[in-house]
Amino acid sequence: MKPPPFEYVRPGSLPEALDALARHGATGRILAGGQSLVPMMNLRLVKPAVLIDINRVPGLAEIRVDGGELVIGALARHAALLGSALVRKHCPLMADAYRWVGHGPIRNRGTLGGNISHADPASEMPAVLAACDATIGVRSAKQSRTIPAAGFFTGALATALAEGEMVTEIRVPLAQPGQGAAWEEAANRKGDFAMAGVGVLVTVAGGKCTHAAIGVAGMAKPGTRLSATEKRLVGTALDAAAIAAAARAAREEVRPSTSYHADATYKRELVETLAARALAAARDRAR
């Protein structure tokens, strides 16, 4: 299980990295944390001709607040995000979900930008970003643009990134008062990819739910929102009956894929359970 040969480029700045990406086109791949890319290379499932190692590009790993948004550099490591007070304060859903992501050595290397570019449907972060209405900052040598998280993920292991583009930052609207967040997940072992994961953001005002966002992981497409279920919740008191009904709705709304550890039916059952738990927890935290 040795990787195939490749050419190695180590840009010292973002423009250099983007130039390299433009030069090598479809045969070039960005090497960020490498925690998904390198296993796939060792298994010879992917064979990039050129690896563009952005790990020494300065300024790409920042975590900061900019206006009404939490801005996370593409190279911010999972470990840094897990331990970040800014993330805990401004994006509690991400902080909650990070409890489930990988293990120490994987989190030391893995990056948020790499994670979402890989777009594994079983990964937590696409669902978190979708639920948070985050935007993805993307750049190529020629242009930069932002893509809403919901539109960024186009399918399993597929994103809206065009050839020559890379993720540079992730922007998440700051959590607001009255908002509660919770992530619930079932995985074969803690730290493994989710069989099913449900992230919930609810805003409660005057005892009523004014906004609900549900992102699910482990389904056919990464970063999936359950908009029909969300609509059902708005206006309810998020009482037990409303949550149970929403959980049942979530079970119907998801489009699960059968994976190694869980078939589609089981995933639906998991979603119902996890959604109910996450909704109850988010509601309680919103108070």
Binding site: Q35, P105, N108, R109
Partner: peptide, 11 residues
């Protein structure tokens, strides 16, 4: 930092 040396290139 602890890392997997099978997922890290020597370079």
């Amino acid at each position: 930092e602890a890392v997997r040396s099978c997922l890290t290139f020597a370079v």
